[in-house]
Amino acid sequence: MALVKEKHIQFIKSLNDDVTEQMIEYWLSEHLRLNGIYWGLTAVLLLQEPSTLDQQEVIKFVLKCWDLKQGGFAPFPRHDAHMLSTLSGIQILANYGAWDVLNEKKQDLVKFIKGLQLPNGSFQGDRFGEVDTRFSYNAVSSLAILGELTKDVTEPALEFVLRCQNFDGGFGMVPGAESHAAQVFTCIGFLAITDNLHHIDVDKIGSWLSDRQVESGGLNGRPEKLPDVCYSWWVLSSLAMIGKAHWIDFDKLEQYILSCQDTENGGISDRPDNECDVFHTCFGLTGLSLMNNEKYSMLSIDPIYCMPKEVTKKFDKWKQSTT
């Protein structure tokens, strides 16, 4: 099966048409809007069709999501700032290189993110105490993109992340929690951003990650679970970060992702013949880009930041030694 590029562009475009607003689902998913825009933008950037989304309109929307009280990005205007939506907001602006719109907001962002770190090094998602290694990634990724990562943040944060590693080499949401491929991405991503990959046994976690590929070619998130296109990103990017991407079968994974396309209306779903959404469309495409961007005429994706490499190459990469 071929990549139905034009259809995917149409699909992303259709998410932003006048019909969408007339569906109840549009209103029920406000809490994920900024994340959704980041996923849609990543998809069209990789497909080299950035004009699918109106840059000025997107930036305006990001700024409307600013939570003045907390000093971070909410997922939707009038909602509350959270670590998850804050990273999406920063990633969108970084993709557009639109730093000038932040002004004094930049220091508020740094304060907001750093303020969410707890004494044990972990991060809460907002002021209400939910702790998760996802937020450790959100924090260091956001700070690194802003060029504001510091050792006083990374050192305790590292200690916490390492406590979340299990006997199988994988990582969980909190210490003691079962290994989960999406949490593995956040933890390996954390280690990659903070220049700490030498702390883990890459052969061990690499083996666990490669065992996520099942007969259909798709990847699952935990032992004995069904495959899902989004793990094409969480697993594959993790393998790429530790230099073991070749430990899975690319041809079969490519075929699996392509078989999840809706060839009529565009979009990619979790499994073949399921309903498509922008989340799985994004992570199916990022997976394809990581495996073979040239074959699909796509931009090359950075496995650490999940943004085009041509954007991330401009970041000041953080090194242990230089701080």
Binding site: Y26, S29, L53, E57, F61, D270, V278
Partner: peptide, 11 residues
Amino acid sequence: VRALKITIITC
């Protein structure tokens, strides 16, 4: 300003 409507229905 037309609000952006990128939505994720199945999630």
